[in-house]
Every structure is written in C-alpha cells, then in structure tokens.
Design a protein around this nucleic acid. Structure first.
Length: 517
RNA sequence: GGCCCCAUAGCUCAACGGCAGAGCAAGCGCCUCUUAAGCGUUAGGUUGUAGGUUCAAAUCCUACUGGGGUCACCA
C-alpha cells in the first residue's frame, strides 16, 4: 500500500466529494472551445468592434480548460487563475449563480487540478479581463500538491515568491518544473524552434535528412568511450553510437551528395555543465565542398537560426553581448595558442620538445597527453576555449588528433579542420573529409595499434567503412554541432541540464525498484 | 575520480551546542471585484542515512547517499 502524505489523503477524500456531487474526477473528454489566449483575443476584438459594450457584464461564450494555479475565495465569490499551454485566464465564481456548485468548488478543488469552465468575459474593477463562470467541472484531480510559487508584478517586473528552484528537484521531477515554471516551458519551446529552424535551413540548401543506426556493431567517428549493450537473440554485443559520421559518409558513397541527421549521441564520459551522457547532435556531409565552404555555411546557418527563433542576431549570453553576424574571425590553432598560452607550437615539432617547452613555462602537462596533438588539444582547452566569447573559427588542427580529416596539401602534419567557439564553449567541429581509402586505412591502422596497446580513446578498425570508401567517396566537407549547446546559447542558460528535458542524474535509493514479495 | 559547498514541514527558507520556527500550500471559521487577496484558528518534523563526541547535537566529528560548484576526463 502506498504511503500517502496527509496532504494527499485530504485530496483523496475530495475525490468522494466530487463523485457524490455527480462529477467524475477523471472524465475521458473535455469540451474546450478556446484556449486562454484565444478567449482574451476574441474578447478584445469584440470590445474593439463594439466600444459601447458594457465591460462589467459578461459577453460571449467560451469554454476553457487548464490547470488551476491560484484561488482567492471571498465568502460568496471567488477568483482563480487557470493556466493552459497558451497562457492564463482569471475565473470569477459567484455563489448566488452557482449555488451548491460554488461550495463544491471551494471544498473539492485544489491548486493543480485540471478544470473546464464556461462563461462570458468581463473586465474587473482592477482591469483584468476575466471569465465569469456559468458552469465548470473537473477534468483531472491532482492528488499530490505541486510546488506553489506565487507571482506578483511589482514595478513592471514579474517577481516570483517561493519559486520552485531546487535544481535537483526540478530535474528529477521535470513534469512539476514544467507545470509551475513557465520559463522552463519556454526553454523547450525555444529548443523545438531551433531544431525546426535547423531543418528548414538545411532542407532549403538541398540537404536530405536521414536516419542511421544508433545500435552499431562498431563505434567510431569521435574520440569517446561508448556504452555497450547486447542483442540477446543474435548473441552480439552492440554499441550505442558516439557519432553519426561514418554512416553518413557511407551515404556519400551512395551518391546522396548532401545528407544530414539530427539525433542522439551517447558518450560514456563524465558529466558537466556542458556534457550529458546522451546529447543531441547535428551532422551534415556536403559533397564537393571543403571546410572553407562549410565555415561559410555555418555562419549563415547560425545567423539564420537566430533570426528565425529570436528575431535578432545580437544575443546576450551570461551577461555578455554576442553577435552572430557572419564573418567570424578565423584564427589558426597555432596563432590562438601563441596568443593565449604564449607557446609557439611550430617551434616544437615533437611531443617531447613541446612537453619540455610547456614545463619550462610552468604550464601543467596532462598525464594522459601522449602525443603532440593531445598536448596541443590540452592547451586549446585550458587556455584558448574560455577566451573565445565572440563567434570564432579555430582552424588547422594537428593530424594525429584528426584521423578522419584531410591533410593540408602543403603541410602534411596539419589537417583542414575547424572548430567553432561561442561564449567560451566549443559549439561545432568540421573538416574537409578524408576520402582516400588507402590513407584512411593507414590512419585506422595507427589508431588500431593504439587500441591494441590499451589507449582508451582509440577505436576498433571499421573494415566496412573502408570497403565503402574504396568504391569511391566524393571530396566533401563534414560538420557536427551540439544542438544542446546551441540551445544553451540562444536560451542564455549556463548548464546543459536546463536545456535537456530529463538530464541524467544518479538514481536515488528511494527510486530504486524494490522486490515486492 | 580529487577538492569545496549543500541536504530542516508539500514548496521557499530561519534556527549554527541549550524547548525545531516563519511565509506559502493544507484543515476549520469569516468575508460577493480579488490577484503574493485579507482576518482568525488548527494541524503538519525520526532535521538525507548510519555511527561518534557531549549532561545536551539540526548545529561539532566520521562514513555513506544524493545534489551543486570546480578540477581531472571528454574531436
């Protein structure tokens, strides 16, 4: 038997009150005719059409449905606010018109209940357009009390009292967060608009949206550890994908030329304000383009998305103004490190020389950095990333940390790769894709040797991908972007958990499944 | 995984070695234009869990659980 709290037991008793009055607490259907926003808009139009309308008497007939968010009972009259997805509407109940039903509203309805109300609109003395309730019924009784933030408008600013603000509770019970925090709902509406704006942009540029396997016999396309699962009947271990790259590029072999996918990647790594074990990625591959063209498309895409969802390219992220206007500076990785870490990496062509130079400057050398590329990557993350607030392309990466990118013609140790940074965060990563099957096989074999030697982020050799490439892959530019991070930027949120509906949290003991025997 | 901080009523928070409290929410009563409605009243707690120190622990110590931050890890 479930242990109900005292508050829940009181509400359970109200179910009987409702049933005794002939109201089913969980009816199958509602009769909504208008949303709250439609109701208010219709009333405003009615008032405009007829300026002589007596605003203190109800006009029109509207049936609205939503959650009860506040109640103010004054003896034989009551005001309440009902909230639906479109907004809020004040309700006005009168005992002299509703009789016993008025008493039922006071006795059996609680904050959080879904109800339906019918009536005309009028304007109160304080000026709020309000539904004069002629009839109402319950649509769904809430047994557990929602958190109860209260809002007021003081000096034009919305002030929330007793906000439901505990991050852990908000993430674990996102449904409650969304139910009481309109701002939380707004973030996910924005997220949906961002994703559809990305689709619109890419569709408009001739890209085909595709879906590739999430369960993969081999993982690849990124330097990350995978989640492992198992197919029982096939007796086969499978990996959850860590990127879409190798499958999307197989499609270029299949003459599809421009493809993209928006979906979930899974990386078995630490969690942080910008890392969730599963996250949403956009990748596209563009035949006959190179990383220069991809850079230009990236600038256009982000400007377009910002226009589309915010109506401006000038955003504020964590108090800092950021311009998403195309024409981002392009800085080579070597220049960026020279500027922010004051090391000339070109002067230190070996891992050992670079390590000594870093030590000579008193810079910490990560123990895991076994190659020159890893050391450079460390410098980028430690000294450069946070400094790049305005949109910036860092270009030209070391070959040994970029096994899928094409080398620059004149500098074989550098590849044609860029990463886009905004707000001190890496947002996207792209390159001129390596399409030489023999070169690719060499790179894989190098990685494979590392893998056999126990290096954690090297990968098993994907023979099928090489077979595909041997059929011929057009030259192409590829691109990957964290959609969650883009949402953080445009929603001005400092942590990825604010833009993921159900971010991963450690399981609590109280939520673990207990054996009911 | 390291370090720092946090966990008290359904929610938001006090009490910081000496009787565990407030506001909101809830119950009861009053109130026919309120909007953080108001007035009166009642109930609500194994202070995250388990130990320890102490005459006395929400408070100090240890471990554990969960969270936040930070570092490490992370194309």
């Amino acid at each position: 038997m479930r242990n109900y709290t005292d508050l829940e037991k009181i509400r359970l008793r109200k179910l009987d009150l409702l049933r005794a009055a002939g109201l089913e607490p969980y009816p199958a259907r509602a009769e909504r005719t208008h949303t709250t926003a439609e109701t208010l808009a219709d009333y405003a139009a009615r008032r405009q059409a007829n300026p002589a309308l007596d605003r203190h008497l109800p006009h029109g007939a509207y049936t609205v449905a939503g959650r009860l968010r506040s109640v103010r009972v004054m003896g034989k009259a009551a005001f309440a606010h009902l909230e639906d997805a479109a907004g809020r509407l004040q309700l006005y109940f009168r005992a002299d018109e509703l009789g016993d039903r008025f008493r039922l509203f006071v006795d059996a309805f609680d904050l959080g209940d879904f109800l339906q109300a019918t009536g005309g609109l009028f304007q109160t003395k304080t000026g709020e357009n309000t539904l004069w309730v002629r009839d109402f019924r319950i649509l769904a009784k809430a047994i557990s009390p929602l958190p109860t933030p209260k809002e007021e408008v003081a000096a034009g600013q919305k002030v929330v009292h007793s906000a439901f603000a505990n991050p852990e509770a908000r993430y674990r019970e996102r449904y409650a967060d969304l139910a009481v925090n309109a701002e939380a709902r707004e973030v996910f509406r924005l997220r949906a608009r961002i994703i559809s704006a990305l689709r619109r942009f890419l569709d408009g540029h001739g890209f085909l949206e595709v879906e590739t396997p999430i369960l993969q016999p081999l993982y690849g396309g990124a330097a990350a550890r995978p989640f492992v699962t198992h197919h029982n009947q096939l007796h086969q271990d499978l990996y959850l994908r860590i990127s879409f790259e190798l499958y999307l590029k197989r499609l270029l072999v299949g003459n599809l030329e421009r493809v993209y996918e928006i979906g979930r990647d899974f990386r078995n790594e630490g969690v942080s304000f910008k890392h969730n074990p599963e996250f949403t990625q956009l990748e596209f591959y563009w035949a006959y383009a190179d990383y220069e063209q991809v850079m230009r498309l990236t600038e256009d895409m982000l400007a377009c998305v910002a226009d589309d969802v915010l109506g401006t390219r000038q955003i504020t992220y964590q108090g800092k103004p950021i311009s998403l206007e195309p024409g981002w500076p392009r800085i080579s990785l070597a220049e960026a490190i020279a500027e922010y870490a004051t090391i000339d990496i070109a002067a230190h062509p070996s891992a050992e020389a670079l390590r000594l130079a870093m030590q000579a400057q008193g810079l910490p050398v990560p123990a895991a950095a076994t190659t020159r590329g890893k050391l450079i990557e460390g410098l980028l993350g430690d000294y450069v990333e946070k400094r790049l607030q305005q949109p910036t392309f860092i270009v030209d990466y070391p070959r040994d940390i970029s096994p899928l990118s094409k080398a620059k013609r004149d500098v074989p140790t550098i590849v044609e790769r860029f990463e886009g940074y905004i707000g001190g965060m890496e947002l996207c990563n792209a390159f001129t894709e390596l399409n030489d099957p023999l070169d690719q096989e060499q790179r894989f074999l190098e990685m494979h040797r590392d893998y056999a030697a126990g290096s954690e982020d090297a990968h098993p050799l994907d023979e099928d991908y090489l077979r595909a490439m041997r059929y011929g892959m057009p030259p192409n530019g590829g691109f990957g972007m964290g959609v969650d991070r883009l949402t953080m930027l445009l929603a001005d949120k400092s942590t990825i958990r604010e833009v993921i509906l159900f971010p991963h949290l450690r399981q609590k003991d109280s939520d673990k499944v207990v054996d009911e025997t």
